[in-house]
Design a protein around this nucleic acid. Sequence first.
DNA 1: GTTGCCGGGAT
DNA 2: ATCCCGGCAAC
Length: 408
Amino acid sequence: MVNLNPAVHVGPTVGRFCVFPHRNVMQRVPHKVSHIRVCMFWSQAVEGERAADGRRTGRSLEGPERERDHTRSVSLLEQKRKVVSSSIDVPHARKSEEEVDMDKVTAAMVLTSLSTSPLVRSPPVKGTEGLNGWWKDSGGGCFTPSSYSSSGYWSWSGPSDQSNPSTPSPPLSADSFKPFRTPGANGPAPDDAIDDQDGSSLLFDEPIPRKRKNSMKVMFKCLWKNCGKVLSTAAGIQRHIRTIHLGRNWDSDCSDGEEDFYYSEIKLNTDSVADGLSSLSPVSPSVLSPVAPPPRSPPTTPGRSHAHSNTTPLSRSAPSALYLIHSDHAYQVRDTPTKTTSNSNFSISWQSPPVTFTGNALMYPPMSLLSRKSRGEGRKCRKVYGMENRDMWCTACRWKKACQRFTD
DNA sequence: GTTGCCGGGAT
DNA sequence: ATCCCGGCAAC
Ligand SMILES: [Zn+2]
């Protein structure tokens, strides 16, 4: 369509040479209606929730003449959210009673955490919709049994090695799931990485039941006046409070949770292992290792100048971005130098970032606001080659992803 | 206004 | 997996 006949106005002498974009001009035909069915990851039982939305993208040339017609987005978001909550306990099959129960509990917890907007822990999402951002993330992370493998990055792939692509996620989801789980829940699950002793996962009153990074040592401090005892396990501190201060009986059985109010979690930053390489271990190390070998905490991201330096050692995706940048260029059609990083599938944990926040009440605000990622200032393919040579751009640029040719 | 690119949709 | 785009923040 749109023939743009090259403005070959035959000049007096020569036809003016003109480069014009003949890129895949007719690539996207205006097409049909797409039902936006928001199929959440594990529940797609949404019916009646569809919006027909004729959205065509006639893209005839470059930029400015694309047309859009409908506005959705907000309502869409709304919908999604609804989906989540409405189908929150759509279990699959019959289960034993306990399990069903467990599901409910889980569901309840999820709901709870959805509705109580997280106070601190402002994830680096947009200012406007912190909650949404958060919600999205946890959605991906928590609810999917085998979430969305390529969770973070739009392209990842080890050309040759690559264990199967769907593996990476499990630890991930499992991990993020943790907070929402009831201690005994998974029956035989040998879970419990260091950080979550049975007792502690019960405390949801605390704003953030989130995953902890491991360079932190978490302690629990009794807040009872004049006490100030510090124990290393939640169970311990609970017991302490129950017995010493509340005068309850010793066996934990029915902890009505009251003691939760009297202790607080503090984290000691034992961050010493710096080694950057160790982090190559495929999945987020914290989850796998039972003993939480402090993998490393990148307080500052070495590579990219702008980084999203987040003071907390649990910084957001910075580190991963780091190796991603150099290691996965699979999509890169040309200039693919080599593909460093021998193997080790990096499946990046990626989703954890928003989840990170560690502390709770005690956490003083070192700086809740991290600088937003600044734009890399170097010019990129787009600028260099210009719109009209779009097919000289690197693939990433063409896809509006982070440029891989001119990395900063 | 433009540029870089994240998040996510479509295929 | 690949391609594309909406939209946003940084310019
Ligand atoms: Zn590029």
